[in-house]
Nucleic acid binder design. Structure first.
Length: 321
DNA sequence: CTTACTATCCAATGAGATGA
DNA sequence: TCATCTCATTGGATAGTAAG
């Protein structure tokens, strides 16, 4: 039982028992360099072990070229639309080649024109752009896209984006055994014992909001969940749903593996360890919540037991092989 | 072969347009 | 005014792919 002092709106301080926190966040498009990110971690008091891997040139090249794509830009004259597509042509350890393809949809004459117009190459770390058609033929839009590429690539090499940041947040949150309160995520309950980590996350997201690339800022909010019957029921119900869903996902995945194994495909020990690990993780989570809620999580536990049995069956398969 | 990462799909959501 | 739709955005899940 966790007792906290909370000030009521009447200014009085009350002793209140807290179950945990309800938290929600949104991470908007972000541009942040690794150095800046290290600074954010430092100031928020987050362990540097959660830092992402350095950005690879290859990925930066892929992201930068991907932004050259266009969808249904209406052309002068009417009835004709321009699409720009980026397609990968070659990928080897020292070179990536992509081509920018012009697709013109002509709805009046019911025709499709399709033509590679640029070759975009990454040789080692350096970007090279070669035109495949006469420059005269190029439209203003196409010119712009190509001109923007070099800067885009430099920027993407230096900066992590919103997706990266979201992943960092989620990885850290995962360690707090969160329960999604809404079916598709977005709002999480986190037990009080992880309140410190949640505080750290909130500090981190606040710092990160300074690096949002849009007018919308990243944000994370949380509010205390007071220990009442009603709140316990809310957490319990969400937990049951989540563990059932997670167990089912595990069972289905393992069923697929067992099927493959029966077809003669090898199932490696590490794959099985991976599943057993996930079963253990869920089990630990149920244990944590059972202790906290002082209830038996019966339905979910039963499902998890099924998952565990299936994992054991996988183990048997491995033993035979 | 495993791991990391991107692209892509799907569902939920909310704003705005449209029409009865 | 209200119901219905379309579109864009967001988060989650997953398949495919290249590096190590």
């Amino acid at each position: 039982m966790v007792i906290e002092k909370l000030m009521g709106i009447d200014g009085q301080v009350y002793d209140i028992s807290l179950l945990g926190r309800l938290l929600w966040f949104t991470i908007t498009e972000t541009r942040i360099t690794r150095e800046e990110l290290e600074g954010v971690f430092e100031r928020a008091g987050i362990d540097q072990k959660w830092l992402p891997f350095p950005i690879s040139h290859r990925d930066a090249f892929r992201r930068a070229t991907k932004t050259m794509e266009l969808n249904r830009e209406e052309l002068a004259g009417g009835g004709r639309y321009l699409n720009l597509l980026v397609r990968e042509v070659k990928c080897s350890p020292d070179q990536v080649v992509r081509q920018l393809v012009r697709e013109i949809v002509d709805s009046k004459n019911v025709r499709l024109e399709y033509k590679p117009i640029f070759s975009l190459e990454l040789n080692g770390e350096s970007l090279e752009v070669k035109e495949l058609v006469d420059l005269i033929e190029l439209s203003r839009l196409e010119h712009e896209m190509v001109q923007r590429l070099a800067r885009r690539y430099e920027a993407d090499k230096m900066n992590y984006n919103g997706r990266h940041v979201r992943e960092i947040v989620q990885r850290i949150l995962h360690g707090c055994n969160p329960v999604s309160v809404r079916p598709s995520g977005g709002v999480y309950f986190v037990p009080q014992k992880h309140a410190e980590t949640v505080d750290g996350l909130q500090r981190m997201v606040k710092e990160l909001s300074g690096y949002s690339a849009t007018s919308w800022k990243s944000s994370m909010h949380s509010m205390p969940v007071v220990d009442t019957e009603e709140q316990r029921a809310m957490v319990h119900e969400s937990l049951e749903d989540q563990v059932k869903a997670a167990s089912k996902a595990l069972i289905d995945e393992m069923a697929g593996l067992i099927h493959q194994a029966e077809q003669g495909k090898k199932v490696t020990g590490t794959t099985i360890d991976n599943y057993l690990g996930r079963v253990q993780e869920l089990k630990a989570m149920i244990a944590e919540y059972q202790e906290m809620l002082e209830v038996e999580v019966i339905g979910a536990a039963a499902n998890l037991e099924l998952a565990r049995k299936q994992a054991m069956k996988l183990l048997d398969l491995e033993a035979v092989a």
